[in-house]
Simulated scan of single mutants.
Amino acid sequence: MRLLLFFTVLCFMGCYQVERNCKAFRTGHFYSEVVIDGSIYRSEFKRLDDLQIETYNNRIDSSRLRWINDCEVVFKTINPKNMAERKDIHLKILATTDTSYTFEYAYVGETKKQKGIAFTMD
């Protein structure tokens, strides 16, 4: 009986797929929230296909975008002000809804990843 229950649950889990309509978030006006060490960090950004302009703490940053595929992108800061800003950031969209997407990101080459959520503003 337990074996039958196990295979039934396994079957339903195998059929479930997370929705990822990443193309819908390639361009637009968004805001994001990331929790780091218990603090919420919010930013607002406008994204074109190859450019993102972000406002965080009343500071504007611009990055060039290189899309790896529909759900992954690498950000390169256009005018870095310090060493940390010289590092490229890899972002991967994990799941989407009609008005938001969940993502993870890290500096390219690093294994520690942060997660966040972005919402459309249009």
Rank of each mutant, 00 (worst) to 15 (best):
M121G: 07
M83P: 06
V34W: 03
D70A: 11
Y101H: 02
E110I: 06
F25I: 04
R47K: 10
Y107H: 12
Y41D: 05
V18Y: 12
Y31I: 00
A84N: 06
Y31N: 03
D88R: 07
M83R: 13
Y107K: 04
D70L: 01
V9H: 11
K115D: 04
T97V: 14
I117G: 04
I40H: 04
S62C: 05
K113M: 10
Y105G: 06
F119R: 09
W67S: 13
F30Y: 07
R20T: 08
L91P: 08
H90K: 12
K92M: 10
S32R: 00
I36W: 12
R2S: 15
S32N: 02
L3E: 05
D88M: 13
R20H: 08
S39D: 00
E54H: 01
Q52W: 04
R47F: 02
K76G: 08
V108A: 09
C71M: 08
V74I: 13
A24P: 06
L91D: 11
F75R: 04
L10I: 08
S63F: 00
G116F: 02
E85H: 08
E104S: 14
C22S: 15
Y41M: 06
I36V: 15
T8E: 04
I117H: 03
R26D: 12
D70Y: 09
Y31R: 02
A106G: 09
V9T: 13
L5V: 15
M83I: 14
Y16P: 01
L5S: 15
L3P: 04
V74P: 10
M121N: 09
H29G: 03
L48T: 00
E33I: 11
H29P: 02
L48I: 05
V18P: 01
N82I: 10
D61C: 02
